[in-house]
Amino acid sequence: MRRPDRTPIDTAIAIAVCALVLLCLTNAYPLVTMHVNGHSRETTLAGAALGLYAQGYVTLAALVFLTTMLAPFVQVTGLLYVLIPLRSNRHARGQNALVHVLTRIRSWSFIEVFMLGALVALVRLSNFSNIVPRVALWTCALLMIVLAALTSITSTEQLWRWIEQSRA
C-alpha cells in the first residue's frame, strides 16, 4: 500500500494559484511570431483550435480546445473552489459532484503534450522562416511543470481523503 501523503491543503492551494496565473498569461499572450519574406504572423494558444475550426474541422478543433484550454482551466479553478473552503473545514456548494467532474476532466488536460507538439511545429517552421518565441511559450513550459506537480499532490485519492478528514 502507498504511504499516505501528508501534503497540507495550503501547499496545494499555493500551487493551484500559481497555475492559475500561468494559465491566464498563457492564454492572454501570443505563443510565437513567424517572420518570412517580409510577412509576419503570430498565434496564441487559442490559435491552434481556431485554425482547425477555420478550416472546417469542428470536432478536431473541439478536441484541441478541450485538451489545451477547457480541461486545464476547469482543473485549476475547480480545485481552488473546493480546496479554499475545505482548509477551514467548510464544504463548497456542490463539492462532491464537482470533484467527480474535476477528476474526470483533468485526465483530458494535455498541456505537456501540446508543449512538445508546439516545439515540433516550430522546428519544422524554422527551416524556412524566422521564429521568435513569445511570452506564452515560456509560461506554457512553466505551466507544464506546475500542473504536473499539482496533479500529483491532488490525486483523486488525496482529494477524497481531505474531504473525509474535514467531515470528522
Binding site: 505563443l31 510565437v32 513567424m34 518570412v36 519574406n37 510577412h39 504572423r41 498565434t43 490559435g47 491552434a48 483550435a49 481556431l50 485554425g51 482547425l52 478550416q55 474541422y57 470536432t59 478536431l60 478543433a61 478536441l63 484541441v64 485538451t67 489545451t68 494535455f110 503534450v113 501540446f114 512538445l116 507538439g117 508546439a118 515540433v120 511545429a121 519544422r124 517552421l125
Partner: peptide, 30 residues
C-alpha cells in the same frame, strides 16, 4: 499521440501567408 495533432494545428494557423504559402489540414489528421 496527440502531439502531431497539435503540431499540425499550429502549422495550419501560422502558415497562412496570402499567396506565398498555406497549410491545409487533411482528413488524415481527423
Amino acid at each position: 499521440s496527440m502531439l502531431d495533432i497539435y503540431a499540425v494545428s499550429l502549422l495550419a494557423t501560422l502558415v497562412q501567408i496570402q499567396s506565398f504559402a498555406s497549410i491545409i489540414v487533411g482528413w488524415g489528421a481527423w
